[in-house]
Amino acid sequence: MSYLSVSTWSLHRLLGPLRWTVWNPETRLHEVKEQDQPQLLSLLELPVEAARRGYQAVEICHFHFPSTSDAYLHELRERFAAAQISLDTILADYGDLTNGDEGRRKADTAFLREWIDIAAKCGAKRIRIIAGEAAPSDEAALRLSAQLLRELGEYGERPGVQVVTENFKSLLSTGANCLKVMEQTAGQVAMITDFGNYRGPLKYEEIAATTPYSKSVHVKPHYDENGRPDEAELRQCLNSVQASGYNGAFVLIYDGPGNMWDGLERVRKIVEPYLEAGGVGGA
């Protein structure tokens, strides 16, 4: 059954500082660069607020975690359980599995294993791992990415965290490459299909082709200067999902101007008929 979810990226102007992970080529270590943002809602308060607003699930970007201590992760898990809302996915927003620097690639892979462990501790069902930043024409990089994704998928099996990737960054910017990775990972890894990350004349066909492999779809519309979604274009994306027979999470994405909850509501009004029809609907 299809259901409504929200990404913390859609609320990033409310949730406090963004803690970006970066690679320092001089020290050859990962660092965290903090970007100041207002905090009107804490991550611990989010589960009950999202549930109150009618969401059934949340996806959390890794840079929104103020702490990864065992105590904090346990409390976050308890907050989701108490609110009766699912923590579907941690979105690891750093890591390049196809980087030409082998040392960095190994460090990034180790970093992602650590986040698989973090996902398990806070009760997330899945973790999104970026396939890589190599050119989409690089077949060797595609094979390397599939191999490392498969290994990370196997690592995640022990704590019960499923690895998913996404049509995000250059390597998986085409539907054809997404399908190749799905084939090469042989069912070990699943997808997230993001409406906004396919571009070009094949966009709607690519959405329809990769949605059957997807655990969630990121409903990311085009917006005008007032934060109003392009409804006709969004419906084309949703109709491509409908054609695939998808039943899963519709994750609302908003990064336009104004109040972020209000922006999400404008998207929600367009999406809800599809949910009410169990993934087959929308006029």
Rank of each mutant, 00 (worst) to 15 (best):
211 T>R: 08
211 T>E: 03
211 T>P: 02
213 Y>Q: 02
214 S>K: 04
214 S>M: 05
214 S>Q: 02
215 K>E: 14
215 K>W: 11
216 S>T: 09
217 V>Q: 12
218 H>G: 11
219 V>T: 08
219 V>A: 13
220 K>C: 07
220 K>H: 07
220 K>F: 10
221 P>M: 08
222 H>S: 15
222 H>Y: 13
222 H>M: 12
223 Y>E: 15
223 Y>K: 07
223 Y>D: 08
223 Y>W: 00
223 Y>H: 11
224 D>S: 01
225 E>Q: 01
226 N>P: 06
227 G>H: 01
228 R>F: 11
229 P>Y: 00
229 P>N: 10
230 D>G: 12
230 D>I: 04
231 E>M: 07
232 A>T: 13
233 E>L: 07
233 E>A: 15
235 R>I: 01
235 R>A: 12
236 Q>I: 01
237 C>W: 09
239 N>F: 06
239 N>T: 13
240 S>P: 00
240 S>Q: 10
240 S>M: 05
241 V>M: 07
241 V>A: 11
242 Q>S: 15
242 Q>M: 07
243 A>Y: 02
244 S>G: 07
244 S>W: 00
245 G>V: 02
246 Y>I: 01
249 A>K: 01
249 A>V: 00
250 F>W: 10
251 V>A: 15
252 L>V: 03
253 I>V: 11
253 I>H: 15
253 I>K: 11
254 Y>E: 10
255 D>F: 04
256 G>Q: 01
257 P>E: 13
257 P>Q: 00
257 P>M: 11
257 P>Y: 05
258 G>E: 05
258 G>P: 03
259 N>G: 09
259 N>E: 07
259 N>Y: 06
260 M>P: 03
260 M>C: 14
260 M>D: 15
261 W>C: 08
261 W>Y: 04
261 W>E: 04
262 D>M: 14
262 D>G: 13
